[in-house]
């Protein structure tokens, strides 16, 4: 390699100038689409909170509801359980079918 070649090679390999960010990254982050990755933490907390609230409600309300049902219901307890289960399954299913 002669001097001209070395000089040319040096030019090619010289580091490029660093471009100042000047708000570029901020602009990217502001316009970043919300993806399922972005929603993940919120979804996790929503699920945890809903489960905790459901457990607490069951613990507090199970006994009064049972008393009320046994006092007023015309149906026997197994029948009420079956109806309740059917509602628990069919209502969300109906909602899903309706919204899709």
């Amino acid at each position: 390699m002669n001097n001209a070649d070395l000089e040319f090679d040096r030019l090619l390999r010289s580091p490029e100038s660093e471009l100042a960010d000047a708000g570029f990254s901020e602009s990217v982050m502001k316009r970043l689409p919300v993806t399922r990755w972005g929603r993940m933490p919120m979804r996790r907390w929503t699920l945890t909170g809903t489960a905790a609230l459901g457990s607490l409600s069951t613990y507090l309300l199970a006994e009064p509801i049972e008393h009320a049902l046994s006092a007023y219901a015309m149906l026997p307890a197994p029948a009420i359980t079956i109806v309740a289960l059917a509602l628990v399954v069919s209502l969300p299913l109906a909602w899903i079918l309706y919204t899709e």
Binding site: E16, E18, D21, F24, S25, V28, M29
Partner: peptide, 11 residues
């Protein structure tokens, strides 16, 4: 990642 790669990518 954006801040780290913005300059070389824009260049």
């Amino acid at each position: 990642l954006v801040r780290r790669h913005q300059s070389p990518l824009r260049n």
